[in-house]
Each structure stands twice: as structure tokens, then as C-alpha cells.
Design a protein around this nucleic acid. Sequence first.
DNA 1: ATAAATGATTGAAAAACTCGATGATTGAGA
DNA 2: TCTCAATCATCGAGTTTTTCAATCATTTAT
Lengths: 149, 149
Amino acid sequence: MENQRSIESDLGYLLTRAGMLVVRATNEALAPLELRTRSYTALSLACDRPDGVPQRQVAADMGLDPSQLVAIIDELEQRKLVARTPDPNDRRNKLIVATAAGRDLCAVAARRSAEVTERYFGSVDPAALDQMREMLGQAVFPDTDRILR
Amino acid sequence: MENQRSIESDLGYLLTRAGMLVVRATNEALAPLELRTRSYTALSLACDRPDGVPQRQVAADMGLDPSQLVAIIDELEQRKLVARTPDPNDRRNKLIVATAAGRDLCAVAARRSAEVTERYFGSVDPAALDQMREMLGQAVFPDTDRILR
DNA sequence: ATAAATGATTGAAAAACTCGATGATTGAGA
DNA sequence: TCTCAATCATCGAGTTTTTCAATCATTTAT
């Protein structure tokens, strides 16, 4: 006898739906900053690494085709939130490095983003939430010892 | 001092990335059945309710614009996996009801889908997984006492 | 009976995705 | 040193997805 469960308990379904909801709410929350979830994520990845992050790696971290990042970075660069600097060690690479203005905006955006998360997950036990982060991190970054903080 | 965390511990980011990964892997797993994650989800929602589910509710449950469902249901209907039956109580509604063939295919697809989930989350404690389902369910179906099974 | 609301459908425009091609650069090996 | 294959960012074309307004049929409220 099969343990038949409804689609509404399917992890893929739940993940996708929850992701959609959070992304949409985040897009609204970031609209006043003229950021979308996408551009905020890219900016944030740049802010995480003061020395800059290869554009290609931003694409990989976002699960996007590298060609999709061109427009996103173009816009951030035009707004002077990031700069494309040639990697001195490998001039094929463009290192995306956040400007001071970029870091400032990112901090504001991070607060708004956190408010959205709070709205959806504020009522659950923080330890359980950390555990969920842990599980998702394992799924998203397999074979990695990276500690999320 | 702010508790500054990297984007990689942001729940929205993790949810989105994990969802993408699972959806893509599920699409591949379902390709031999000529189903995509989208059509499988719609079919599954129909299978969950023997008396049929209003097309509009399928759209709502999937977070899609109703117009996007037309093509999805069209295809399932052409393949005789579901039928659009007029709701006797409100003839504006189309009730999507799964056929026997639809239920059979859905069962096969569910197994393949579960294998994908197993691949990404098989190594984590089942209780923690249930807890994650619970948390995501709360976020996706707020103000609902629905018990996921 | 009329008017407002709701559901499915269509079509058009915008956004996102995919993929192959290109030029610049690097690294390996003859 | 001189190819040659590989890698990176970018571009462009073609496809798919999303968004949204309009339409028709039906229902509900007035």
C-alpha cells in the first residue's frame, strides 16, 4: 500500500510556492529602492566580498545563465552601486565590487527583505528556522562546508 | 551593531534557489512521461479531489494567473488525463477532474518526483523534514488549519 | 430587470530563458 | 615561441513565461 500524500505536502511544491510568495513580496518591498529581488541578490553577493566576486560566479550563485547577468550588472553599474573591475589575475574575469553607495543601499534593502521574511516566518521557532536554513543550505550548496551566517 | 548575515543565509534566497533546483530536476525526471513540473502539479491537484477542482482554484494553488492555466489544462485534457466538466452548481466554473489514466500517470509521476526530493533531502532527519513541511505550509497556506498528509 | 461581480478564454506586449556565436584572454603542450 | 583548446563576458535570435486588459457567459445582489 502506497503512502499517498497530497501534492500540498510535496517539498518541491512547497519550496516553489514559498519562494514565489517571498520573491513577489520582496519585489514589492524593494520597489521604492528601485531594486528587484534579482538585482538585490546580485548586489548582495558583491557586498559579501569586499574584493569583488567574478561575474560568472554571481551567475552560478543565482542559478542563472551568465548572459542573463549582463543586463542586471549593467543596471547596477549605471547606478554606481557596483563597478566591473578587471581581475588583475585573469583579465577575462570581471570582478563585481560594490561601491560605498551600493553597500549602503544593500543594507537598507536587507532590512526590508528581512521584514518580508519576518512576515512569512516570524511566528515559527527561531531554532526551527535555523534548522530549515541548514537543510536548504545543504540542498543548495552540496559538498560544501560553508557555514551560513 | 547590526547582525549582518550574508545573502546565502537569507531564507528568500535559499527558498528560491532550492525551488529552482528541485523544479529543474523534476522537469528532467518527468520528461519521459511528457509532463513538466507545472502540468504534474495541476494534474496532481485534480487527483487530490475526486469530485474535481475549479480551474480557478488550481491557478490560485499554483500561484499562477488564471490565463496561464488554460494551456496547461488544454494539454492535459487533450491527453485525456483530465476532463473539464461544467460545475452543475455554477456553470461559470470548469471543474477539472482527473481520469483513470490521469490518476495512473500521476502516481508514476509522484514516485519520480519523490525520488528527486529524496536526492536533495534524503540525508536529513525525517522529523526535521516534516517540520520544514509544516513551516512552509504555514507560509503558503496561512489562516488554514489544513493538515498536510 | 438591471447592474455588478466572477469565471474561463483570448491576444498582445513585456520580461525571462536558452543557446549558439564572437572576441579577448589564458594555459598547456609541441 | 607558437599554436590550440578552454574560459569569460557579451551579443543576438528564437522560444517560453508573465502580465494584463478585453470579452463572453453566468451568477448574485439590488
